[in-house]
Amino acid sequence: MSMLEVKDLSVSYGDLHILRDVSFSVEPGQWLMIIGPNGAGKTTILNSISRGVPYTGTIVYQGRDIRRWKPRELALNIGLLSQNNSMGYAFTVEEIVRLGRYAHSASVLSGDKDGREEAIDRAIALTGLEGLRNQSSLTLSGGELQRTFLAQLFAQDPRLLMLDEPTNHLDLVYQKQVFNLIREWLTENGRAVVSVVHDLSLARAYGTHALLLSKGRTVAEGPVSEVTAPKLLNEVYSMDVYSWMREMYSQWTDEDSST
């Protein structure tokens, strides 16, 4: 039994088909990279699994249809870092991270029975937010906010992480740090990651598996090296992906040699 099994997933708004019959599965220990050009429907897959959009088809987690999971139980198992987290109110970083523990404690009145404070402290430390702990989220930079919600996700501590462009607003230092962090997190038993990334080199470097989408349909699915083969990518992106990357890389080396 797979950890997550998606079968014939379709999503449409009126006549507009976002996803058509997408199927894939995720096993423990896997890091599935969902890749593809803009508008391929990558984010919609994550939103369907988190029950944020209506879909047809079946999504089964741990042998049970996700529609039959209670929201709180599901949140203990699947967590989503979504891409746009615009803030309206001046919650502090800590308050946002604390919300990640929602699924762990039954009611507003129950105390810290489950190591809530430690989990929050650890999540804040992991994402390097100690100095911003009591700062209003309205004054954070895009990257800081991104890390805040990542910390929330770590505090939530699910077994399947879903990340939509997790390093979108992050500089290189944090980009590397976050990806390494997640790779390390993944080493523990029974965990898996599904993430949407644009950067194909990141996908190749960190992913174990990949799902290549184009216009809402599956183009390829399997081990990351197979899916990111030049032929497939060139077709989907309608350009020579590999030589473009090589060109970019060569400029770096050129500059290096000139100095």
């Binding site: 709180r72 989503l80 979504s82 803030m87 109110y89 919300l99 929602y102 507003v108 929330q152 939530q156």
Partner: peptide, 24 residues
Amino acid sequence: LLHARELNAFAVGEDNARNIGVNV
């Protein structure tokens, strides 16, 4: 008053509330 935490989640964002397990 008993829904203070859920309201916090909604005030951060309805999607976020769903993600952390609130029965939206």
